[in-house]
Protein backbone atom coordinates (compact mmCIF):
# COMPACT_ATOMS: atom_id res chain seq x y z
CA UNK A 1 0.00 0.00 0.00
CA UNK A 2 1.30 3.44 -0.84
CA UNK A 3 1.27 6.52 1.28
CA UNK A 4 2.63 5.50 4.66
CA UNK A 5 3.09 8.47 6.88
CA UNK A 6 6.60 7.37 7.80
CA UNK A 7 8.48 9.96 5.81
CA UNK A 8 10.53 7.35 3.97
CA UNK A 9 8.52 5.56 1.32
CA UNK A 10 7.68 7.30 -1.91
CA UNK A 11 4.60 6.55 -4.02
CA UNK A 12 4.97 3.63 -6.39
CA UNK A 13 3.88 5.71 -9.32
CA UNK A 14 2.18 9.04 -9.73
CA UNK A 15 0.38 11.37 -12.16
CA UNK A 16 -3.05 9.94 -11.37
CA UNK A 17 -5.50 11.53 -8.98
CA UNK A 18 -4.42 10.85 -5.42
CA UNK A 19 -6.32 10.74 -2.13
CA UNK A 20 -7.17 14.06 -0.58
CA UNK A 21 -6.11 15.85 -3.71
CA UNK A 22 -8.49 14.66 -6.36
CA UNK A 23 -11.54 16.41 -4.93
CA UNK A 24 -9.74 19.44 -3.49
CA UNK A 25 -10.84 21.72 -6.26
CA UNK A 26 -9.51 24.84 -4.64
CA UNK A 27 -5.82 25.35 -4.07
CA UNK A 28 -4.68 22.99 -6.81
CA UNK A 29 -1.75 20.78 -5.99
CA UNK A 30 0.48 23.43 -4.51
CA UNK A 31 2.34 21.75 -1.70
CA UNK A 32 3.10 23.31 1.64
CA UNK A 33 6.83 22.99 1.05
CA UNK A 34 6.87 25.64 -1.65
CA UNK A 35 8.48 28.80 -0.34
CA UNK A 36 9.30 27.28 3.03
CA UNK A 37 11.48 24.51 4.32
CA UNK A 38 14.72 22.98 3.09
CA UNK A 39 13.83 23.43 -0.63
CA UNK A 40 14.06 27.17 -0.23
CA UNK A 41 17.29 28.76 -1.44
CA UNK A 42 17.43 31.09 1.50
CA UNK A 43 18.04 28.38 4.03
CA UNK A 44 15.67 26.84 6.47
CA UNK A 45 14.92 26.94 10.14
CA UNK A 46 14.79 23.44 11.59
CA UNK A 47 13.27 22.33 14.83
CA UNK A 48 16.16 22.08 17.27
CA UNK A 49 14.39 21.77 20.59
CA UNK A 50 11.40 19.92 21.97
CA UNK A 51 8.40 22.03 23.02
CA UNK A 52 5.82 19.99 24.91
CA UNK A 53 7.75 17.30 26.70
CA UNK A 54 7.42 14.26 28.87
CA UNK A 55 10.15 13.30 31.30
CA UNK A 56 11.54 9.87 32.33
CA UNK A 57 10.22 6.48 31.26
CA UNK A 58 11.14 3.37 33.25
CA UNK A 59 10.88 -0.18 31.93
CA UNK A 60 11.58 -3.49 33.69
CA UNK A 61 11.59 -7.07 32.44
CA UNK A 62 10.17 -9.60 34.85
CA UNK A 63 9.50 -13.30 34.93
CA UNK A 64 7.04 -13.79 32.06
CA UNK A 65 6.62 -10.21 30.94
CA UNK A 66 7.62 -6.61 30.87
CA UNK A 67 6.27 -3.38 32.32
CA UNK A 68 6.82 0.26 31.37
CA UNK A 69 5.89 3.26 33.48
CA UNK A 70 5.82 7.00 32.96
CA UNK A 71 4.20 9.81 34.91
CA UNK A 72 1.09 11.58 33.64
CA UNK A 73 2.74 14.92 32.95
CA UNK A 74 3.43 16.65 29.67
CA UNK A 75 5.30 19.91 30.36
CA UNK A 76 5.42 23.10 28.33
CA UNK A 77 8.93 24.22 29.08
CA UNK A 78 8.95 24.40 32.87
CA UNK A 79 5.16 24.72 33.09
CA UNK A 80 3.39 21.58 34.30
CA UNK A 81 0.92 22.10 31.44
CA UNK A 82 -0.94 18.79 30.86
CA UNK A 83 -1.36 16.72 34.00
CA UNK A 84 -3.34 13.66 32.95
CA UNK A 85 -1.69 12.34 29.83
CA UNK A 86 -0.96 8.69 29.23
CA UNK A 87 2.63 8.37 28.06
CA UNK A 88 2.53 4.57 28.05
CA UNK A 89 0.52 2.73 25.42
CA UNK A 90 -0.73 -0.64 24.45
CA UNK A 91 0.19 -1.12 20.81
CA UNK A 92 -1.45 -4.54 20.65
CA UNK A 93 -1.57 -7.64 22.84
CA UNK A 94 2.12 -8.29 22.35
CA UNK A 95 3.67 -4.83 22.35
CA UNK A 96 3.70 -1.80 24.64
CA UNK A 97 5.40 1.56 24.29
CA UNK A 98 6.44 4.33 26.67
CA UNK A 99 7.47 7.75 25.45
CA UNK A 100 9.38 10.76 26.70
CA UNK A 101 10.56 13.84 24.82
CA UNK A 102 8.40 15.86 22.44
CA UNK A 103 4.84 14.67 22.77
CA UNK A 104 3.71 16.08 19.42
CA UNK A 105 6.43 14.07 17.70
CA UNK A 106 5.18 11.02 19.52
CA UNK A 107 1.59 11.59 18.43
CA UNK A 108 2.68 11.76 14.81
CA UNK A 109 4.55 8.46 15.25
CA UNK A 110 1.47 7.01 16.90
CA UNK A 111 -0.60 7.79 13.80
CA UNK A 112 1.93 5.91 11.70
CA UNK A 113 1.81 2.96 14.08
CA UNK A 114 -1.99 2.90 13.84
CA UNK A 115 -1.70 2.96 10.04
CA UNK A 116 0.67 0.00 10.21
CA UNK A 117 -1.83 -1.89 12.33
CA UNK A 118 -4.56 -1.28 9.75
CA UNK A 119 -2.21 -2.53 7.03
CA UNK A 120 -1.65 -5.66 9.09
CA UNK A 121 -5.39 -6.20 9.36
CA UNK A 122 -5.79 -5.68 5.62
CA UNK A 123 -3.14 -8.30 4.85
CA UNK A 124 -5.45 -10.86 6.45
CA UNK A 125 -2.66 -13.19 7.57
CA UNK A 126 -3.37 -12.85 11.33
CA UNK A 127 0.15 -11.51 11.81
CA UNK A 128 0.36 -8.24 13.69
CA UNK A 129 3.16 -5.91 14.69
CA UNK A 130 5.66 -7.57 17.05
CA UNK A 131 7.77 -5.66 19.58
CA UNK A 132 11.13 -6.32 17.90
CA UNK A 133 9.76 -5.22 14.53
CA UNK A 134 8.27 -2.10 16.07
CA UNK A 135 11.57 -1.42 17.83
CA UNK A 136 13.60 -1.85 14.67
CA UNK A 137 11.15 0.24 12.66
CA UNK A 138 11.39 3.07 15.20
CA UNK A 139 15.20 3.05 14.99
CA UNK A 140 14.94 3.46 11.21
CA UNK A 141 12.39 6.28 11.38
CA UNK A 142 14.24 8.20 14.08
CA UNK A 143 17.66 7.77 12.52
CA UNK A 144 16.32 8.75 9.10
CA UNK A 145 14.91 11.96 10.55
CA UNK A 146 18.11 12.81 12.39
CA UNK A 147 19.98 12.35 9.09
CA UNK A 148 17.77 15.09 7.68
CA UNK A 149 18.79 17.27 10.66
CA UNK A 150 15.11 17.27 11.61
CA UNK A 151 14.97 14.78 14.48
CA UNK A 152 11.83 13.50 16.09
CA UNK A 153 12.67 14.50 19.66
CA UNK A 154 11.79 11.23 21.32
CA UNK A 155 13.11 9.00 24.04
CA UNK A 156 11.14 5.78 23.84
CA UNK A 157 10.99 2.44 25.57
CA UNK A 158 9.53 -0.47 23.60
CA UNK A 159 8.43 -3.62 25.37
CA UNK A 160 6.50 -6.77 24.74
CA UNK A 161 6.49 -10.49 24.31
CA UNK A 162 8.02 -12.10 21.26
CA UNK A 163 8.27 -15.88 20.82
CA UNK A 164 7.30 -16.27 24.47
CA UNK A 165 10.26 -14.18 25.64
CA UNK A 166 9.99 -10.74 27.23
CA UNK A 167 11.53 -7.95 25.18
CA UNK A 168 12.65 -4.51 26.32
CA UNK A 169 14.45 -1.93 24.21
CA UNK A 170 15.25 1.77 24.14
CA UNK A 171 15.34 4.12 21.14
CA UNK A 172 16.23 7.79 21.22
CA UNK A 173 16.05 10.83 18.99
CA UNK A 174 19.15 9.89 16.99
CA UNK A 175 17.94 6.35 16.40
CA UNK A 176 20.44 4.95 18.88
CA UNK A 177 19.12 1.79 20.41
CA UNK A 178 19.89 -0.93 22.92
CA UNK A 179 18.11 -3.78 24.62
CA UNK A 180 18.38 -4.47 28.34
CA UNK A 181 16.53 -6.05 31.27
CA UNK A 182 16.09 -2.64 32.88
CA UNK A 183 15.75 0.61 30.98
CA UNK A 184 15.22 4.16 32.11
CA UNK A 185 15.33 7.40 30.11
CA UNK A 186 16.18 10.97 31.03
CA UNK A 187 16.48 11.66 34.75
CA UNK A 188 15.42 8.07 35.38
CA UNK A 189 18.81 7.00 34.06
CA UNK A 190 20.46 8.71 37.00
CA UNK A 191 17.80 8.27 39.65
CA UNK A 192 15.85 5.07 38.95
CA UNK A 193 18.45 2.76 37.41
CA UNK A 194 20.76 2.57 40.47
CA UNK A 195 17.82 1.81 42.75
CA UNK A 196 16.59 -0.96 40.49
CA UNK A 197 20.08 -2.40 39.91
CA UNK A 198 20.64 -2.73 43.65
CA UNK A 199 17.71 -5.10 43.85
CA UNK A 200 18.88 -7.46 41.10
CA UNK A 201 19.27 -11.03 42.33
CA UNK A 202 21.93 -12.90 40.34
CA UNK A 203 20.61 -15.81 38.36
CA UNK A 204 16.91 -15.03 38.32
CA UNK A 205 14.66 -12.35 36.85
CA UNK A 206 12.42 -10.12 38.94
CA UNK A 207 8.96 -11.38 39.77
CA UNK A 208 6.02 -9.28 38.60
CA UNK A 209 5.44 -8.15 42.19
CA UNK A 210 9.08 -7.09 42.62
CA UNK A 211 8.94 -5.20 39.33
CA UNK A 212 5.72 -3.43 40.35
CA UNK A 213 7.30 -2.36 43.65
CA UNK A 214 10.49 -1.20 41.94
CA UNK A 215 8.46 0.90 39.50
CA UNK A 216 6.60 2.36 42.46
CA UNK A 217 9.83 3.23 44.24
CA UNK A 218 11.37 4.67 41.05
CA UNK A 219 8.39 6.89 40.35
CA UNK A 220 8.48 8.09 43.95
CA UNK A 221 12.15 9.03 43.83
CA UNK A 222 11.69 10.64 40.43
CA UNK A 223 8.79 12.70 41.73
CA UNK A 224 10.87 13.98 44.65
CA UNK A 225 13.99 14.80 42.66
CA UNK A 226 12.94 15.55 39.08
CA UNK A 227 11.37 19.01 38.79
CA UNK A 228 9.51 17.93 35.59
CA UNK A 229 7.88 14.92 37.20
CA UNK A 230 4.41 14.40 38.62
CA UNK A 231 3.01 12.34 41.49
CA UNK A 232 0.64 10.42 39.22
CA UNK A 233 1.77 7.75 36.78
CA UNK A 234 0.56 4.97 34.51
CA UNK A 235 2.04 1.51 34.06
CA UNK A 236 1.71 -0.62 30.93
CA UNK A 237 2.15 -4.34 31.49
CA UNK A 238 2.62 -6.99 28.80
CA UNK A 239 2.59 -10.72 29.50
CA UNK A 240 1.75 -13.79 27.44
CA UNK A 241 -1.88 -13.19 28.47
CA UNK A 242 -1.94 -9.80 26.73
CA UNK A 243 -1.19 -6.16 27.39
CA UNK A 244 -2.95 -3.43 29.30
CA UNK A 245 -2.40 0.02 30.75
CA UNK A 246 -3.16 0.47 34.45
CA UNK A 247 -5.47 2.92 36.10
CA UNK A 248 -3.68 6.03 37.34
CA UNK A 249 -1.25 5.25 40.19
CA UNK A 250 -0.26 7.65 42.96
CA UNK A 251 3.19 8.15 44.45
CA UNK A 252 3.49 7.91 48.26
CA UNK A 253 4.28 11.43 49.41
CA UNK A 254 5.69 12.46 52.74
CA UNK A 255 6.55 16.09 53.34
CA UNK A 256 7.03 15.97 57.13
CA UNK A 257 10.73 16.51 56.68
CA UNK A 258 10.08 19.76 54.79
CA UNK A 259 9.59 21.81 57.91
CA UNK A 260 13.19 21.14 59.00
CA UNK A 261 14.61 22.16 55.64
CA UNK A 262 16.22 25.56 55.90
CA UNK A 263 14.48 28.15 53.75
CA UNK A 264 11.33 26.08 53.26
CA UNK A 265 8.89 28.16 55.27
Amino acid sequence: MQGYNDGMSRPFWSNGPSPGQFYNFTGGDRSASQGFGPQNNFGAQRSSQPITTGTSVVGIKFDGGVMIAADALVSYGSVARFQDVKRVFKVNDQAILGTGGDFADFQSIQRSINDKMIDDICHDDTISLKPKSLYNWLTRILNNRRNKFEPLWLDMVVGGIENGEPFLGHVDLRGRSYEDDIIATGFGKHLALPIIREQIVEGRPFTQEEATNLIKKSMEVLFYRDCRALSRYYVAVCTAAGANVSEVQKVNQNWEVATVVRGYS
Binding site: P19, G20, N114
Partner: peptide, 22 residues
Protein backbone atom coordinates in the same frame (compact mmCIF):
# COMPACT_ATOMS: atom_id res chain seq x y z
CA UNK B 1 -9.36 -1.72 -3.00
CA UNK B 2 -5.98 -0.03 -2.62
CA UNK B 3 -7.54 3.32 -3.47
CA UNK B 4 -10.25 2.69 -0.88
CA UNK B 5 -7.62 1.84 1.74
CA UNK B 6 -5.75 5.05 0.97
CA UNK B 7 -8.95 7.06 1.24
CA UNK B 8 -9.74 5.43 4.58
CA UNK B 9 -6.24 6.20 5.81
CA UNK B 10 -6.42 9.75 4.47
CA UNK B 11 -9.67 10.31 6.36
CA UNK B 12 -8.07 8.95 9.53
CA UNK B 13 -5.08 11.25 9.26
CA UNK B 14 -7.28 14.29 8.71
CA UNK B 15 -10.21 13.69 11.03
CA UNK B 16 -9.46 11.01 13.59
CA UNK B 17 -8.33 12.94 16.64
CA UNK B 18 -8.51 9.95 18.94
CA UNK B 19 -5.26 8.02 18.60
CA UNK B 20 -6.29 5.20 20.91
CA UNK B 21 -6.42 2.30 18.48
CA UNK B 22 -8.93 0.30 20.51
Amino acid sequence: VDIARQEAQNYRSQWNANLDFE
